[in-house]
Amino acid sequence: MDGYLGAGQRLIGGASRRALPWRASRFLYAHPRGRLALLLGPGVLWLLVFYLVALFLLLLTSLWQQDVFTAELVHRWTLSNYTKIFSGQDGLWLRVFGRTILLAAIVTVMDIALAFPLAWFMARVAPPRWRTLLFLAVVVPLWSSILVRIFAWRTILGSSGVLNSMLQEIGILSHPSSAFLYNEKAIAITWAYVWLPFMVLPIFTALEKIPDSYLEASRDLGAGSWTTFKRVIFPLAVPGVIAGSIFVFSLTMGDFVAPQLVGGGSQVLGGAIKDRFGVAADYPFGAALAMLTLLTLTVFLTITSRAGAKESL
């Protein structure tokens, strides 16, 4: 009797403990909108507060003025920060903008050229054990600080660096050349290196997905290696190439670390924005430059998403 009662109480207690989650789950089942809100709410709220609101503040700042001496923002509307970009200082900022786009394009092309053969080897040639090793070799550098990886290039390219001593050793140079470091070439080489994994991985994914039967079919129909590459492999790899290009191009447009460490006098957009915010305390103009970067990337993303990159991202 006691046992029976006890079990009954437990049963009732259990039911009441379950009541709330049970009711909640029933409510959510009946109300798809509530379900959606619960799933998306935290993420959307996060994006709204820390991303959209921040971006909007940036936009406002770019339309405000500033007291030059105290660096306090003056909340008076102006477009002067934008006219300065497009027509101020003998076209200085348009040149900086052009230089940055050109560098980003060059780095993207360099990375495609470097990553494609590597990704092909990893995806289709290497035996499985090699593939894992290569995969690690591509990814592991990402675990170290970007600063360290950029510093490495300084020791390679500098006057007493590895490259110079090697060229002197084999007699190509009689004295160390200063042409390798502290200029745009050094920036391009460094960026191409640090962003390479972001290009290799999406291309690898795209190439791995191509079924062997496609290649066999191509060969059966009499296509040579080149034709197979041009007509079958490359078109199927394009989404991967575009996805990688989005990563590399965007990262390049915004980076200021490499230009500061291995670059020369010439400014790039990322460095100029960082200097406006971190050194010159010229927030409105820095914000205007940041809006320009944002606009450029939006245009770039629109073009690439038309080319069908989304499914590979």
Binding site: F69, Q89, D90, L92, R95, G265, A272, D282
Partner: peptide
């Protein structure tokens, strides 16, 4: 800090032009 006849913003702008 330069304030006049040329102010510091003119100096930072000039420096940005030197950097190029």
């Amino acid at each position: 800090t330069p304030t006049s006849p040329t102010n510091y913003r003119q100096w930072t702008d000039t420096w940005a032009q030197v950097r190029g």
